[in-house]
């Protein structure tokens, strides 16, 4: 061991510990679009948080100015058909969008990941049942499922989230199932089995961490889809109920007044579009950063 010891002694030990995650983080920071999108989303979260304690005006205060007022210095985005401040309502609407977007994806992860992992890792009859259920859910139109559920459960934020999850969990389950199926054939998973790992450890210690990249991307890209779906439901009038503002219901009200108060539809639409774009750019950035195939 003499020479080895000598080598150890003379070679400084580099402190750097480059995990694949820190590698991905470095690549993500280099992506301009994703960076700008992240900053926008952080601001959006900040706005939503602020709006829980402060808005320029009370968002449900009726007639604080004239109805259909165009933007002014006092009301930066003008007022709506009841003379409510649009900026205040937009800020509160951000809460709704974020809760719906993030909330559904958390539930989608909670449902889709375990189902996908079990089906993909164990295969056999379990997989067949899961695949069957997934296909059944895909067979029913999204809107129908969501509207029926909202009608049965009643329109509330919680029930809308449940309705969206019911139409979205299959994407995640299917993705995770595919990942688990390909990862279980990899040698390091076999090595884990040889090392005596129990099934729980196999699933959550080896398979899940290695599937996390695509899962994160899918979840991130699922957020705008959910936000859009909520906006659509609210636009149709089966979403969050007044007076709680949602960008979707605000756009709906705006469309009716599009002839004489176009700012009513423009403001929520731009907020919605920017947010959707930001999540999509972030999702794409994450995909590029996390996808090992883009690695040289």
């Amino acid at each position: 061991m003499a020479t080895a010891a000598a080598v150890v002694a003379v070679r400084p030990i580099e402190p750097e510990q480059a995990s694949l995650w820190s590698d991905a983080w470095r690549r993500l920071r280099r992506n301009r679009f994703a960076l700008v999108a992240s900053i926008y989303l952080l601001l959006l979260v900040a706005v939503a948080l602020i709006s829980t304690v402060w808005t320029p005006y009370r968002m449900s205060a009726v007639g604080i100015t004239e109805t259909y007022a165009p933007p002014t210095a006092a009301h930066l985005l003008g007022s709506d058909e009841l003379g409510r401040d649009i900026l205040s309502r937009l800020m509160v609407g951000a809460q709704v969008s974020l809760i719906v977007g993030v909330g559904t994806q958390i539930l989608v992860l909670a449902v889709g990941v375990p189902i996908g992992l079990l089906a993909g890792y164990y295969r056999g009859w379990l997989d067949q049942i899961v695949t069957f259920i997934i296909n059944v859910f895909y067979g029913i139109p999204d809107l129908l499922v969501a509207m029926i559920l909202v009608f049965i459960l009643g329109p509330s934020l919680r029930n809308i989230i449940i309705a969206i999850v019911a139409t979205r969990w299959m994407d995640m389950a299917r993705l995770v199932r595919g990942q688990a199926m390909s990862l279980r054939e990899r040698e390091f998973v076999e090595a884990g089995r040889a090392a005596g790992a129990r099934p729980i450890k196999m699933l959550f210690g080896h398979i899940l961490p290695n599937a996390l990249g695509p899962i994160i991307v899918q979840a991130t890209l699922g957020i705008p889809a959910a936000i859009l779906f909520e906006a659509f439901l609210s636009f149709l009038g089966v979403g969050v109920q007044p007076p709680t503002p949602s960008w979707g219901s605000m756009a709906n009200e705006g469309v009716m007044a599009i002839q004489y108060a176009p700012h009513m539809v423009i403001a929520p639409s731009i907020a919605l579009s920017l947010t959707l774009m930001a999540f999509n750019f972030l999702g794409d950035g994450l995909r590029d950063a996390l996808d090992p195939r883009s690695r040289r």
Binding site: L20, R186, E187, P209, N210
Partner: peptide, 9 residues
């Protein structure tokens, strides 16, 4: 390259 879990130290 394939037999070591890339996410583990």
């Amino acid at each position: 390259f394939a037999s070591l879990d890339p996410r583990m130290t």
